[in-house]
């Protein structure tokens, strides 16, 4: 089971124009966990996520997926184990139809045609979107696009799912469906989001980032109950959060 453990140690990263994004970040995600990464805009959430699946390679520090260090040489393999769902579904749905898009990953993995088709069907069913198979992406609603994007990632059978702002732009019904979907997945999930109520509903652990550093790491009840911490990190408690009785 070791390949299901995702961890970063001493991760630091600055963008080419000099903007520092991450400063000595260390964190660990174990098999089956559901972790929410929260923080103000610019705190480094997206940058951290991009390191977790190898789209960015650590400048300082190391990221490991199980025993495999994430480097330029291993990133292709990492991409298959760690699935990434992007913030803007339009960036991810680039093929002419839904089923061709979901098939993109499996086809690149070199799987035979019938296996690809089976995976496409299974993934679309898992996100309740099989009727959309022949539809063109520009004809999908925000929620439908998000579901299909997730299906496209699921079709590669990753063990870890990384999601960047999955509920952004979704109407309440679509958001509710997304939450149900995420809860139904047994994958390890790392979710960067502003939607703190989603974190409450889906995640068992919360990581707070502020200015590229990890400020806190623990269960939602403790993190969201810590008013000083939240204020310092420019956050507010989720609306549906009731502090546990003392």
């Amino acid at each position: 089971m070791s390949h299901h453990i995702l961890e970063a140690q001493g991760l630091s990263f600055a963008y080419p124009d000099g903007t520092p994004a991450l400063n000595d970040v260390s964190c660990r995600f174990v098999h089956g966990e559901s972790v929410g990464i929260v923080g103000a805009n610019g705190a480094g959430k997206s940058t951290l996520l991009l390191h977790l699946n190898g789209l960015l390679i650590a400048q300082t520090g190391v990221v490991r997926v199980g025993d495999l260090p994430v480097t330029a040489a291993t990133r292709a393999q990492v991409h298959r184990t760690v699935g990434f769902v992007f913030q803007d579904a339009d960036d991810q749905l680039f093929m002419p139809t839904v089923e061709e898009d979901v098939a993109f990953g499996p086809l690149n993995m070199g799987l035979p045609a019938d296996e690809v088709q089976a995976r496409v069907r299974a993934s679309l069913e898992a996100v309740d979107s099989l009727p959309l198979a022949a539809r063109a992406p520009y004809r999908l609603s925000g929620g439908e696009k998000r579901a299909v994007a997730i299906a496209g990632v699921l079709a590669m059978s990753p063990s870890i799912l990384v999601l960047d702002e999955p509920s952004a732009g979704l109407d309440p019904a679509a958001r509710r469906r997304l939450i149900a979907l995420l809860r139904s997945f047994s994958h390890t999930k790392v979710i960067a989001t502003h939607d703190l109520d989603l974190v409450l509903d889906v995640c068992s652990r919360v990581l707070v980032l502020h200015q590229g550093r990890v400020q806190a790491d623990g269960p939602p009840a403790r993190i969201f109950g810590d008013a000083t911490l939240l204020a310092r990190c420019h956050l507010e408690p989720p609306l549906s959060f009731a502090p546990p009785a003392p």
Binding site: L50, N53, L55, A76, H79, R80, G83, F84, F86, D88, D90, D91, Q92, F94, E100, A103, F104, G105, L107, N108, M109, A113, V116, Q117, G152, V153, M156
Partner: peptide, 21 residues
């Protein structure tokens, strides 16, 4: 946007060849 799409393509195993069923 093109850069993000490219990343999304890489993340799902794009190697320069567009395959279709």
């Amino acid at each position: 946007r093109a850069q993000r799409i490219h990343m999304a393509m890489l993340a799902r195993g794009f190697d320069g060849e567009l395959r279709s069923l």
